[in-house]
């Protein structure tokens, strides 16, 4: 089986890139191919890159509180391109928001403090198309 390909992305104006870089390295160490978009992307640029790169999962890192607005827009932008790439969200996401995010099509949510194996497991599970309810 070919290695999983994951696009990790920062959407919007949030410049906190410690988490996204750590997660990128964790995934790479687990044998996953990782592409990083860089900062200040829009939902459209992320969706376009994900489709172009033919990735299995999109990982969004959001720490500014804009996840309720921007994460669903990424899902919509992916679907608008006729793709069904699962979107996993990590960062500062309160428990209260998780249900609504699932309803908006987010495959899984990783809260602060998630250990490496859980990150890898969540991404792998999402790639297999299974929704996982993962709280903070």
């Amino acid at each position: 089986m070919a290695a999983l390909r994951v696009l990790v992305a920062k959407v919007g104006l949030d410049g906190h890139d410690r988490g996204v870089k750590v997660v990128a390295r964790l995934l790479r160490d687990a044998g996953i191919e990782v592409i990083y978009t860089g900062l200040f992307q829009t939902p459209e640029t992320v969706a376009a890159a994900a489709v172009d790169e033919d990735v299995d999962v999109i990982g969004l890192s959001m720490l500014s509180g804009a996840h309720m607005t921007l994460a669903p827009l990424v899902v919509q932008a992916v679907r608008a391109r006729g793709a069904d790439i699962p979107v996993v969200l990590g960062g500062i996401v309160p428990n209260q928001d998780v249900e609504e995010l699932h309803a908006a099509g987010i495959a899984a949510v990783l809260g602060p403090g998630a250990p490496a194996d859980e990150v890898v497991r969540t991404i792998t599970t999402a790639a297999r198309g299974e929704r996982r309810h993962q709280g903070v």
């Binding site: 919007g12 104006l13 949030d14 200040f40 829009t42 500014s64 509180g65 804009a66 309720m68 607005t69 921007l70």
Partner: peptide, 21 residues
């Protein structure tokens, strides 16, 4: 965030970030 990056609140990139952090 929009103010920190020198954007007005009605800038398209500011969506979802106005008054948040």
């Amino acid at each position: 965030m929009p103010t920190l990056l020198g954007l007005d609140s009605d800038d398209p990139m500011a969506l979802g970030e106005v008054g948040r952090c």
